[in-house]
Write a protein that binds this DNA or RNA. Structure first.
Lengths: 204, 204
DNA sequence: TGCATATATAAGCATTTTCCTTTATATGAT
DNA sequence: ATCATATAAAGGAAAATGCTTATATATGCA
């Protein structure tokens, strides 16, 4: 689970409260590691337990005291050693593809409707990414170096590249369906599947 | 959750046991909806409860009885109506991107090592996709129509397109790091961030 | 005047997802 | 002769995620 390490990553720059962190998450890593309040507060509690962060409680009146979390030396070390371990390829679940896989059950018109909705969702996502650089300026005490800023932008670039690839795919698919050309760029399953399979079997 | 609907989708073609279904999953939908044995057996139990499938128990000696699951009329209807509802955009968690985001903490050499590992993982995934069409021939009682087969191949095409987009991205990134050109195709955060921000603030 | 929003934290529950273990036997490979 | 693999099913536990609710006040907008 990356969540605690993302938190450590941000606390390196400056101490922050859970509330601050939530806001930071939403304009930085949300597209590849979304987290909500409850996740963040829970993770912070665990980090305190293993002394990766320490709390400084700042009294306030009228609302809960601020709990400012500071990263510890131990936390820094944990972060670095985690960063050095290569990540396993993260598997993805994609409901839209399940729809496509079993789309044989629907009429072309219905499939096209689904795909249009999917395409709109993708376009919204893209628009969202485009707004991120500006939002970054308004948040938090970050003064990244050129190199750091480069890495940040790379994750955005990744998001944009991937969404664009999906858009290209979905547009191509829609066109083919509209033209009733049910062909894929991947080698089609032979329709005489059975015969071919029998042949293979005998061949063994 | 798509899992029960994927199961219904396959049971449309022919009745199957949990064991059969597991094998089918692994050569068809694994790249966008992986499932292991325990998921499948649990989902089947739920489907029986709501009468979307029915069990036919076939006695065997020496090993557990086969439980052959048949889709019911109700199950067919459930599947169709689920398929017609547009899917929400599925959010993705990506540990590799967390690494990139905080790569400022590592030396270029270490980052390059990580990226190389990531690239290798992607290449393996791609190789895996390339094998799927052949594997499909060896499984199960499917005799898809040309149109159906088209939809199946589309999901593969999607997987391939996406992995290739990621490969292109990671290769580009490695090159830029090797050349120490820390620039992104996305507009960089201005280094004089503070000044710009102050200006904005005054402007409000 | 009233309503939404920002500030601040956190518990609680439901659901999902993963991972691991157990039970049995036949078959084929080393 | 032994070891791995295929066949078949399912329970248990833990981790991760998602969603809701509660508490309290200041501030700005309509």
């Amino acid at each position: 689970m990356s969540l605690p390490y993302v938190i450590l990553g941000f606390l390196q720059y400056a101490p922050a409260t859970g509330y601050d962190l939530k806001k930071t998450f939403d304009v930085t890593v949300r597209h590849f590691w979304p987290a909500d309040q409850s996740h963040i507060y829970r993770a912070l509690a665990e980090l305190v337990e293993r002394d990766a962060v320490r709390v400084e409680e700042i009294p306030q009146s009228g609302r809960p005291n601020r709990k400012l979390y500071h990263i510890t030396e131990r936390g820094r070390q944990e972060l670095i050693s985690w960063l050095r371990q290569p990540a396993a390829v993260s598997r993805v679940r994609n409901t839209a593809l399940v729809h496509v896989f079993f789309a044989g059950n629907l009429k072309d018109a219905d499939v096209l409707t689904l795909l249009e909705a999917y395409e709109n969702g993708l376009r919204e996502e893209l628009a969202c990414y485009r707004r991120i650089p500006d939002m970054l300026h308004d948040v938090a005490p970050f003064r990244p170096s050129k190199r750091e800023s480069f890495f940040w932008m790379l994750t955005l670039e990744y998001g944009i590249v991937l969404v664009e690839a999906q858009l290209a795919w979905v547009r191509g698919v829609r066109k083919r369906i509209q033209a009733k050309q049910y062909v894929s760029t991947v080698e089609d399953l032979p329709e005489e599947g059975k015969a071919v399979r029998e042949k293979k079997r005998r061949g063994r």
